[in-house]
Design a protein around this nucleic acid. Structure first.
Lengths: 372, 372
DNA sequence: GCGGCTGATGTTTGCGTAAACATCGTGTAC
DNA sequence: GTACACGATGTTTACGCAAACATCAGCCGC
């Protein structure tokens, strides 16, 4: 821990030998007013100590070739002694890039957003980029606009937006020029670059699974209106039923939360002919399971339930939940790749990339009861 | 978008007339070699267009007093026309601060970390600070060291670490000087500034609640060894029992995941004398509930279960989970406050701040069965 | 032996901003 | 009416870095 305590800038005389003695003059003489204690050593300091030009320090710092091995070693030693760290502000100013990606998202309350964010951060780090978080408290236009106006001053080279793009457009966002944007949870593939889970494919798999088990039709516990993902799942659910010649029951809506799933579940439990429910996410499925349990409808004997997301807890539900697995890590990875490509001006400017899903069969689905 | 294309730097003499008409000239004449299309307007560009000095633009930009209202308006108009955005790299370089806080954390798989991070981001935004994420894939020393070495070059003024500080120490971290650190999930209050949930208080409340219900003792499903929070809960659990004159049963460990709670639950279900279990988090409690259910032990009639965290889903478990509510938002808020105070050199350098918990009674706890 | 090349290094310059200092009217006190 | 304060603005400078260019040995080929 001692390394943290050290204050390399004020070392008494160690730097004097070996090279330049000019430092002492600088250290003391000037007006002692507020000394300002230079916080970090600069390239110039290192250069002085190593007896080279600052440009050579720069070359070493950036790992350029063309520096004599002996010189390089001297410089490295000087850097170490002074505790030199390149100043990223100066670097960014000079290079014109921050090596940082901004991520705008709503509250991190949904598993999907968190997982995606995590993957983005990891992938970005891998590429030498940092990730700056721009939280938006509420999905209102004012909030979104606020986030973007913060962004305007922010040190980012690109932005990944994890939310329905309509809010973005509606907020009359004015992005800093040359800042690339990639969007998740949106259908704006013709205006933006979009990366998303294959909502439709996953939904189709879920519905088909239930129909294959023998259910006459499938009810749907949908997500909130604002969400594109929710909309997409609802549309796909309806389409899959129609395609199979079934009649879609009325839609029941929740807001992604388990609590809303519970409330919707109480409603669904009242329908005796409801033998299969496709919940738009696992949390709502959880609430649904509780409601069904309370109303004495057994899962999966009386009612089959299928979720979406495959959160880690899904396998521990009662009963373990059959669900559609989303590969959030892949989504995050692709976001970073897409945004970097856009920055480097390779790859398509717009269009949607879909990440496939996978149906995970557990114990919450079964054939319908003999005669309901 | 046209504002982007414009190359304000090369304007010949437009500044002369209030709102120049000389723009056309700039587009053609200059050497067409890679034009480099200046990406953004600088203060100088705005100054030229507004017919003032760049310093005045700076004053307007920073909202300083002492600028004539008319002048200010001119400047603002010019800014708007050029789509001017202050360059944060230059600003950071000049001011010597980035207005950014780095957050180091393990994978965002635990609710607590995510909630805390979210609160940190929100509070920081409130204070005009951005948050940069430094994900650490695995809690190994090498990984932690890697994160910190990335950090060394990173544009942050302070760091909040959400993890057991031992890993940090062990990684022989060398922090940039003058970068303040605040830590969550740690007992290093004497070396660092620590903000944490009152683990002991929450645990005591949980244990007492169960004892008050009439249980002879309370079993404990603990978290992983590396975690300070887990350790603290385990210690407090044992202490609370001893204090009440009870004999602590053997400790059962999980790794925070529901799956591990399930495995541990199978084990616990085998003990007929186990009538009350305190799980170190809600996810493990979920798995525990499933295991008990599978083994035919009813909750709460046969076994009482209590969790820790109060994740949103807890109220939808079967049965709804009694648990200890953690105020992650407050933890995050206090982290930001502490770190900003340290930067401004007010407030104590080290020491621990505890955030109180609250017991949330739901349906998973009840008096023990008559004669077990 | 000379021109030119290569590798290693130094020098100059400018990125965009804002602190510090300088200037310049205008009014106000005496 | 001179002195002086004050408000409004302009000028200079430095933040730390790295691209572009300059220098300067040593070495090669002919």
């Amino acid at each position: 821990m001692d390394t943290v305590e050290r204050a390399p800038a004020n070392l008494p005389g160690p730097a004097a030998e070996a090279a330049g003695t000019a430092r002492d003059a600088a250290g003391d003489a000037p007006a002692p007013k507020r000394t300002r204690a230079r916080t970090t050593a600069s390239m110039a300091d290192v250069a002085r100590l190593a007896g080279v030009s600052s440009q050579t320090v720069s070359r070493v710092s950036n790992g350029y070739a063309g520096v004599n091995e002996k010189t390089r070693r001297q410089v490295l030693a000087a850097m170490k002694e002074l505790g030199y760290r390149p100043n990223s502000a100066a670097r960014a100013l000079k290079r014109g890039e921050f090596r940082t990606i901004g991520v705008i998202t709503f509250t991190l309350s949904t598993t999907g957003n968190v997982r995606t964010l995590e993957a983005i951060a990891t992938s970005a780090a891998h590429e030498g980029y940092a990730v700056t978080l721009l939280p938006v408290a509420l999905p209102t236009q004012a909030e979104v606009r606020g986030a973007f106006s913060r962004l305007e001053e922010l040190a980012v080279d690109a932005v990944i937006v994890i939310m329905e793009v309509h809010l973005l457009d509606a907020a009359t966002v004015q992005l800093p020029p040359h800042v690339q944007v990639v969007v998740v949870d949106s259908d704006a593939g013709d205006h933006y670059t979009v990366v998303d889970t294959d909502q439709a494919g996953g939904t189709r798999a879920a519905v088909r699974h239930l129909l294959d088990l023998g259910h006459r039709t499938v009810w749907h516990l949908g997500g909130p209106e604002g969400s594109f993902a929710a909309q997409r799942r609802t549309d796909a659910w309806r389409a899959a039923l129609v395609e199979a010649g079934r009649v879609p029951p009325p839609l029941v809506r929740g807001d992604w939360s388990a609590e809303s799933g519970y409330r919707a579940g109480l409603e669904l439990a009242a329908h005796d002919d409801c033998t299969a429910v496709f919940a738009a996410n696992d949390q709502m499925a959880l609430g649904l399971l509780r409601a069904l349990h309370e109303r004495g409808r057994r899962v999966p004997e009386d009612v089959s339930v299928i979720g979406f997301d495959d959160i880690p807890e899904a396998s521990s539900f009662l009963p373990p939940l059959t669900t559609v697995h989303q590969d959030f890590a892949e989504v995050g990875r692709l976001c970073v790749r897409a945004v970097l490509r856009k920055m480097r001006q390779v790859g398509p400017e717009r269009g949607t990339t879909l990440v496939p899903t996978r149906l995970v069969r557990r114990d919450s689905t079964a054939p319908p009861p003999e005669h309901p």
